[in-house]
Simulated scan of single mutants.
Amino acid sequence: MDRPEADGITLGVEEEYLLLDVKTGMPAPRAGEVQAAADLEPVLDAGEVDDELLQAQVEVATPICTGLAEVDGHLRRLRGAVAGAALRAGCRPAATGGLPLRSTGIMPVTEKQRYLDMRDDAARLVDEQLINGMHIHVAVPDRHAGAAALGRLRPWLPVLVALGANSPFWDGRDTGFASWRTVVFGRWPVSGSPPYTADAATYEQRVDALVDTGVIRGRREVYWHARLSERYPTLEIRATDVQLDAGSAVTLAGLGRALVATGLREAAEGVAALDPPGSVLHAAGWHAARHGLAADLVDPVRGTPAKAADVVGELLAYTMPALEEYGDAGRVAEGLARLLDGGTGAARQRRAVAEGGAAALLDLIALAPAG
């Protein structure tokens, strides 16, 4: 396997937002109205605002990007334009991983057959899917290389869960978790950290075996924290909540690309993969969702507790050659320092509630219109 060139590894980011009524802060099933209003936004292209499982959510996706400055520009453009479109529909898009205030209604499912099938299969679970994530797509040369990279970034996924935690509140209560979204998603039959894969054949066998059980309807219901995309030639990292601000999202996107690039390089050079037991990764992921960066994390290399700052520093050192190759080292290091010093989105949400109650929380998580 040839070592991939740095300039050949592009990336893109998808973000999901919760639509909240401007007056009440309650979930607002107005995705169709927001999409229609988005057509009036001059900086948005047709189809850039997409629907999601529930009608109180929308999703955006950047174009394919070559660098973090490009990702940053598109995320700020998309966030501002969606906020403007949502205001015309009487709601605000919220960059939070979970439903903040208590809701008394059930949100309607988007009228797509796939989503209707999901409601038939898991009605109550679908009702509780008012959760929003961030997905990082990193280009891989082929599925063989992608599967090998997936096996190597797998031990670090709980650390990404901790860094990206931004859903402490659910239905009007503090859950005690930093990423309640991770817990909700963990109730689907195929979720959490993926099994180890060394090559495409192993990956395809594992996914085929899951589909063959009949428990899931198809490959798109493989909701691991990272997976090979079935739509694009990418490795898709799905471990993090949507971020409060574009800067944090860019930090995680840069770190995600560096993890994939490092995995591709190690596979090409025959470096032995770190392969912790699935049970350890499950526990580490749960712990990361529980605490974010506010407690020790499980060190992926040793499988023992370590200070969050030390584990994040170890991840930064592990990915540093790739970060330097892309010119991202300074930007990502500064972004990680901000998360360690200022707290994750979850910590910032809790501070907002402590200082200003629900109103301050809604102001924090709501996207601001451009200009």
Results as ranks from 00 to 15, higher is better:
101 L>Y: 09
205 Q>G: 15
131 I>Q: 13
332 V>R: 10
62 T>F: 00
264 L>R: 01
21 D>C: 06
77 R>K: 07
199 D>C: 02
24 T>I: 02
53 L>S: 10
62 T>I: 05
153 L>F: 00
309 A>Y: 12
278 G>P: 12
109 V>H: 05
356 G>C: 00
18 L>G: 11
152 R>Y: 00
168 P>S: 02
181 R>K: 10
267 A>Q: 03
254 G>M: 08
10 T>N: 13
294 A>M: 07
153 L>Q: 00
164 G>E: 01
244 L>Q: 08
53 L>P: 05
111 E>R: 11
112 K>H: 15
251 T>S: 10
354 A>F: 12
174 D>V: 04
78 L>S: 01
350 R>G: 14
214 G>Q: 06
325 E>M: 12
271 V>P: 12
189 P>A: 07
114 R>G: 10
123 A>L: 14
102 R>A: 09
243 Q>T: 06
64 I>A: 11
325 E>T: 15
202 T>C: 06
257 R>F: 01
88 R>F: 10
253 A>P: 00
276 P>S: 14
226 A>H: 02
314 E>R: 15
198 A>N: 10
126 V>D: 11
208 D>I: 07
361 L>F: 03
270 G>H: 06
105 G>C: 14
258 A>I: 00
160 L>F: 15
66 T>W: 13
6 A>V: 15
62 T>H: 03
42 P>D: 12
329 A>R: 15
265 R>A: 08
98 G>K: 01
71 V>S: 06
315 L>P: 03
126 V>P: 07
95 A>N: 03
241 D>P: 14
336 L>W: 07
326 Y>Q: 14
207 V>P: 03
364 L>F: 09
110 T>P: 14
269 E>M: 06
22 V>W: 05
3 R>M: 14
288 A>K: 05
345 G>E: 03
2 D>P: 15
251 T>Q: 02
227 R>E: 05
315 L>V: 02
222 V>H: 05
116 L>K: 11
354 A>N: 08
85 A>N: 04
355 E>F: 11
323 L>H: 04
23 K>F: 15
292 G>S: 04
261 A>D: 08
362 L>E: 02
204 E>Y: 02
137 H>C: 03
337 A>T: 15
221 E>A: 15
217 R>A: 07
306 A>H: 11
268 A>G: 09
293 L>N: 11
16 E>D: 11
221 E>M: 11
98 G>E: 04
40 L>I: 08
57 Q>N: 08
176 G>K: 07
327 G>Y: 13
39 D>I: 11
317 A>T: 13
231 R>G: 12
362 L>F: 13
80 G>K: 05
